[in-house]
Computed example of a mutant assay.
Amino acid sequence: MSKPNTLIFVDLTSDDPAAAGEFYADVFGWENDPRPYGVFHRMVPGGNMYDSNGNETTIGNFHLGIHKADNTRPHPNNEGADPREIAGPGSKARVWILVSDDDTMEDILERAVSKGAKVLWKDHFWYEFNGFNSAFEDPWGNEIILWGKGGAEPQIPAHFTTE
Rank of each mutant, 00 (worst) to 15 (best):
P4S: 04
P4G: 12
L7H: 09
L7I: 12
D11Q: 12
P17V: 11
G21L: 10
E22I: 13
F23P: 09
A25E: 14
D26Y: 05
G29F: 11
W30S: 09
W30M: 09
E31I: 11
E31V: 14
D33Q: 12
R35C: 05
P36Q: 06
Y37A: 15
F40V: 14
H41G: 03
M43H: 00
G47K: 08
N48I: 00
N48V: 06
M49S: 03
N53M: 08
N55Y: 00
N55V: 04
I59A: 14
N61C: 14
L64I: 15
G65V: 11
K68C: 07
A69I: 08
D70F: 10
D70H: 11
D70R: 04
R73C: 04
P74L: 10
H75G: 01
G80L: 01
D82S: 07
D82Q: 05
R84V: 06
E85L: 01
E85N: 05
A93G: 15
V95F: 10
V95I: 15
W96P: 00
I97L: 08
S100K: 13
D101T: 13
D101A: 14
D103R: 01
D103A: 14
M105E: 15
E106N: 13
E106A: 15
I108E: 08
E110T: 15
R111N: 10
G116V: 03
A117T: 06
V119Y: 02
W121N: 10
H124S: 04
F129S: 09
F132T: 04
N133L: 05
N133P: 01
F136A: 04
D138V: 09
D138F: 12
G141S: 03
E143C: 03
I144D: 09
I144P: 05
L146N: 10
L146F: 05
G148D: 07
G148A: 07
G148K: 13
G148M: 14
K149C: 04
G150H: 02
P154L: 07
P157S: 00
P157F: 01
A158T: 03
H159T: 02
F160M: 01
T162A: 03
